[in-house]
Amino acid sequence: MIVHQFNAAGSKARQDLDDAPIIRIHDLRKSFGSLTVIDGLSFEVHRGEKLALIGPSGSGKTTILRMLMTLETISGGRIEVCGEPLYHMSRNGAEVPADEAHLHEMRRHIGMVFQHFNLFPHKSVIDNITLAPMLTQGVARADAERQARELLEMVGLADKEASMPSQLSGGQKQRVAIARALALKPEIMLFDEVTSALDPELVEEVLEVMKRLAAETDMTMLLVTHEMGFAREFADRVLFFDRGRICEQGTPEQIFTNPAQDRTRTFLRKIIAAGHRV
């Protein structure tokens, strides 16, 4: 039910932009001190695309998502979201670094789900979900709660609205976190290894929710994961990262059954050996 609202909001408001990439990353660089983590990265994401970012540990996947969520500053290059620069803005005709007001404005397009959930532990499940819409979008409490209940229904937690996060299992926490992010109706959702902190038997319930989300919405989704089987099923396009660059990209079919690069093959072989399904 709720997902149709996303469709409407997504397509009506910005029909003119539908063909333009929703995310455009150009020559992006990021260093932590002397360590360069992202080095001249460029790629584009189209509206509605489901993208899986895979690659060895330390290749910069999380950093990319964090830069998109403005949790990290960039060291160079450019990111555009919905046709507007993320870290730049124009003032008196000149382009200057973005200020907090601009970042705030831009963050409305983007939501994120974290590996460790990061629910607000002092708030009940429903308050976790209604807090931001009420504070940042001026949604009335009654409307926010109605929407939160629909979202909880969708993630299969309709009976948990009054629970505190500490009373939930990891899988339930993560589904609440997904609902919390969805409540803001972002056009872009970022998922950073959202199942890797979960006990194995709880992984499926979260993946199930995400599969439905991918199938039923036209939200743009970027997914960092070590679950290759899920990436294959979920993604329209897979980017394989190595040392802060895209080493290879293609459809899941191409990447998983017929990778062109040796490094991709090595990575996939290792990850299968480590017990992940492909």
Partner: peptide, 27 residues
């Protein structure tokens, strides 16, 4: 207060003030 709380507040687009009053100080 865990760093993730600041990040969740940011990801849900709370302002600095809202982050303090609704997320950080209550914890």
């Amino acid at each position: 207060v865990a760093r993730g709380q600041w990040e969740a507040a940011r990801a849900t687009n709370l302002t600095m003030r809202q982050t303090w009053t609704h997320v950080i100080l209550p914890q």
